[in-house]
Design a protein around this nucleic acid. Structure first.
Lengths: 156, 156
DNA sequence: CAATAACACTTAACAAGGTAAGTAATAACC
DNA sequence: GGTTATTACTTACCTTGTTAAGTGTTATTG
């Protein structure tokens, strides 16, 4: 009685945004729990990961790599500086920029959690299947390379 | 100089949480823009979608279906009631529960945006490929059925 | 049937997401 | 070379995410 005979839109389980959201929640919930023990949020962990992986960089690049907006990053870096997880120095060549680097303490945090993180993802890979995981990462990487920002009613 | 020779963890592009986050951002950014015109956030849209698809339900179920936590849902429903997008009534059989239903105005909002939404996803499907999209949804659905909440050092 | 547990939210507090506007520094233009 | 963009953040504001604690209601137990 309460439903239309033909739903206007597809089932939420087959809705890409919702499926992606659920997947992230499925994957991240156990990790968040792990990280919380060190006072590191999911976002701070991403910042540490990116800096450890790619070295010092300015905030715009860091934001892009860690999938954070600049305003969020500003706040997070302030907290991370207070926690001595990262260090910031002005770029001498361009005083608008500041260069962020991971600190020794930041590396220690990564080293502390890397074994648990690795074990967790091994467990995930085992439960989900190696081939499936590879296929999923390939599909996500391809999706992320799409440019969907054209307007639907763009006449150009 | 700034990097380890062997990174402790995998490239962020091959990190499942980050790949999922980027994918969500890629897919949702254009949609958010569309919805903002009606004062509907991404989350309110999900609530409307679920209610339209499955009919009235209590908040716990709605939260699960719309991928929202109960505290968030409490706030969102308060706003949506003020916007007359949904209606809430106490469950006569169990006064702890309240049953939420989409309103006529809520349905109108869905009808307003359904064509754009459908066009957008058609565009996405076209750019990404029908088979890839199906494969991705299948893989995400399978991932979401995993139970990863065992503790890594669970001895049982 | 009283005490207790479980349930369905709700509130509170703080971190983060998202948009818009503001500030200082550099680049581009005439 | 002074004016006008553009860039790289930063601030402000509001909504949402996340955890923990609180409130009223129903179920369970002794």
């Amino acid at each position: 009685m309460e439903n239309h005979d033909r739903p206007l839109l597809r089932r939420t389980a087959r809705s890409l945004p919702i499926a992606l959201l659920r997947a992230r929640e499925t994957v991240m919930a156990p990790l968040r729990e792990m990280l919380a023990e060190s006072g590191v949020t999911e976002q701070k962990w991403r910042v540490l990961r990116v800096l450890e992986e790619s070295g010092p960089m300015d905030q715009s690049l860091l934001a892009a790599e860690a999938c954070l907006q600049l305003p969020s990053l500003t706040r997070i870096l302030r907290a991370m500086e207070e926690q001595r997880l990262v260090e910031r120095r002005a770029d001498p060549a361009d005083r608008r920029r500041s260069i962020v680097a991971i600190s020794r303490h930041g590396r220690e945090i990564i080293e502390t959690h890397a074994p648990d993180s690795i074990a967790y993802f091994a467990r995930l890979e085992n439960a989900y299947g190696h081939d499936r995981l590879k296929a999923l990462l390939d599909l996500l990487e391809a999706l992320n390379e799409l440019d969907l920002n054209r307007n639907a009613d763009d006449n150009s």
